[in-house]
Write a protein that binds this DNA or RNA. Structure first.
Length: 560
RNA sequence: GCGCCCGUAGCUCAGUGGAUAGAGCACCGGCCUCCGGAGCCGGGAGCGGAGGUUCGAUCCCUCUCGGGCGUACCA
């Protein structure tokens, strides 16, 4: 399933047994074997894999690293090791292992057999929830939500392929203070649009989308709401608007290729008494105290800078209180691991959230918050400012309209989440080599074109068992095979380090190696056995590109 | 002030404590009787700064300078 991992494990075992053998023969003295690395050296001249074991043992064994490496080698019979061509000692004491190409020639059959499943590996265990976007249903989806969507969904895809049982969740903030403000804003707009002179709330949501929402309400209810008791009117207005906003969010995210398993309502937590319950529970545990009429959570007990209000002096719980109840609810649903994708402006919330987990008796390590830095949007070299208040922002639906889903998703995950993202709308829209997403998609389309060409010439790829891959000897072919072999390992690292950008980078590299191969060698040629092997190489390259693009939520077109 | 993130090539960014730090764009020069030139090949320069830990530091620690964000009885 993971060829590179298999080789690494094999080499690790060889070294460990060599060490034990050396100890038995009293050629090396040590108590424990340190955790050492089998890694892929940057330099090709340093072999296919290298280990740092000798340097790490130097202190304990009281021997020079190179001498230790020498001793390890003495214990090994290279000729008896599979795939190993030679082993060298180099530099300060690296053990460099050179493999024969035989192991690479097994890759095509493996990939061909697994097809759409190639890259999956079963190391991940348990149920994991990824909660992302969770935008306030009070306005349009902005670039921050968009980045969160691309990152969260890609991460969920990665974790699925790494063997986890993944659920995607959207937390709907349909309760609390901002809903009051939202309602105030809607009500004011309602009166204004029905010919009344009322002031718009100072901190209200001034976006144009909200005006449209109110127009829809008016088209359904006319002016009848104006004469209703206020409470009734507000209830109708806000429920109607929320329904519309949530539908908008859901539809837009579906257009973005994101499908949630669960839409979780904050209001439902309040209605079910879960927020009150958790406050009571924390009071009983002595984690909450009263001060100046408000109730405070002792986050400072758990390493936070200061305590945080959970119930305001006016008796209303804060967002934080609901969030504690929400996380309790998550774990009660049986998730082993919970990941939240948050904007960097929420980073101050992490310490107290983890503190709350401890107070509730959960291991805070079961919660990971993936912070992403904010997005700066550019158009023609000019920065486009984001502001929900003024409504001058570009919304996600407009972005998809302008640059397309594929480019948008690729751009958002191309960078590390903790790097600020400069999103250039003009670049994303370009259909040229400057645009990385086209570079990758073009590779896929080009391979499809080769197969169309072959089909037209009556050439069919024989059964995999009848193809001898050992005729693939060119550098470009071997590099391509090697890169394809890396794919499962790449997914596993991306899952472990919560690094979706690795997959974007991987598929860019893979496409580059393909284009390089393509420009140097012909697939369809006079040499039958070489043609067969290259057709298979093209097939598995296409499979790997496709599988990687699937993870990113980017389409793999057959022609462009 | 304090806290978190980021300072890597002209620009945008990669880089799980390893050996000579990579890519794209931009710039210059090559490559289409040939499976799609939306491509390929070649060419320069860089870890903000100072200490420390380590056999070895872009990576870890301390200090410092610069940018972003946070520091609400907002979310």
């Amino acid at each position: 399933m993971n060829p590179v991992e298999d080789i690494k494990k094999y080499l690790e075992e060889i070294i460990v047994s060599a060490l034990k053998e050396a100890k038995e023969q009293e050629k090396l003295k040590f108590n424990t074997i340190p955790e050492f690395l089998i890694e892929v050296p940057r330099e090709k001249g340093h072999g296919d894999f290298a280990s740092n074991i000798a340097m790490l043992m130097a202190r304990e064994a009281r021997m020079a690293p190179r001498q230790i490496a020498e001793t390890i080698l003495q214990m090994l019979d290279v000729k008896k090791l599979s795939h190993v061509e030679k082993i060298e000692i180099a530099g300060p004491g690296f053990i460099n292992v050179f493999l024969s190409n035989e192991w690479l020639y097994k890759i095509p059959e493996l990939v061909y057999g697994l097809e759409g499943k190639y890259g999956f590996n079963g190391q991940g265990r348990g149920k994991v929830q990824v909660e992302f976007v969770s935008a306030n249903p009070t306005g349009n989806l902005h670039m921050g939500n968009a980045r969160g969507g691309a990152i969260g969904d890609t991460l969920a895809n990665i974790l699925e392929r790494a063997g986890y049982l993944v659920e995607r969740e959207f937390y709907i903030n349909d309760a609390g203070n901002q809903i009051e403000i939202f309602t105030d804003s809607l009500e004011a707009r309602y009166f204004q649009l029905t010919g009344h002179h009322v002031p718009f709330p100072e901190n209200g949501y001034a976006g144009k989308d909200l005006v449209d929402t109110v127009k829809n309400i008016i088209s359904r209810y006319g002016e009848s709401l104006a004469v209703m008791p206020q409470e009734e009117r507000r209830k109708i207005i806000v429920e109607d608007a929320l329904k519309e906003k949530i539908a908008y969010i859901r539809d837009t995210l579906e257009d973005f290729g994101i499908h949630y398993d669960v839409w979780f309502s904050e209001k439902s937590l309040h209605d079910a008494g879960e927020v009150d319950n958790i406050i009571e529970y924390l009071k009983e545990k002595g984690c909450i105290y009263e001060n100046e009429g408000a109730w405070w959570f002792k986050s400072s007990l758990f390493g936070d800078e200061k305590d945080e209000v959970v119930v305001r002096a006016n008796g209303l719980p804060t967002y934080f209180a609901a969030d504690i109840a929400y996380h309790k609810n998550k774990f009660a649903r049986g998730f082993d691991w919970v990941i939240n994708v948050w904007g960097a402006d929420h980073h101050g919330h992490i310490a107290r959230m983890k503190g709350a987990m401890q107070a509730m008796g959960y291991d805070p390590a079961r919660l990971d918050v993936l912070l992403m830095q904010l997005v700066r949007l550019y158009r023609g070299g000019n920065i486009v400012r984001m502001s929900k208040r003024t409504g001058t922002t570009v919304s996600l639906d407009e972005l998809i309209e302008e640059v397309g889903r594929d480019a948008a998703r690729f751009f958002f995950v191309m960078r590390s989440p903790d790097s600020h993202l400069d999103f250039d709308l003009e670049l994303a829209r370009q259909k040229s080599q400057e645009n990385p997403v086209y570079y990758v998609q073009y590779a896929h389309a080009r391979i499809c074109s080769i197969f169309r060409q072959a089909g037209a010439a009556g050439i069919a790829m024989p059964l995999v068992n009848d193809i001898d891959c050992r005729v693939l000897r060119e550098d470009e072919e071997l590099l391509l095979l090697r890169k394809i072999a890396d794919f499962p390992e790449e997914i596993s690292i991306a899952a472990r380090t919560l690094a979706p950008q690795r997959i974007a980078r991987y598929v860019l590299d893979l496409a580059g190696l393909f284009h390089s191969f393509y420009n140097h060698h012909r697939v369809l040629n006079e040499n039958r056995s070489l043609q067969d092997a290259r057709l298979l190489l093209m097939h598995i390259t296409r499979t790997t590109v496709k599988n990687a693009l699937d993870i990113l939520g980017v389409s793999a077109p057959e022609q462009m």
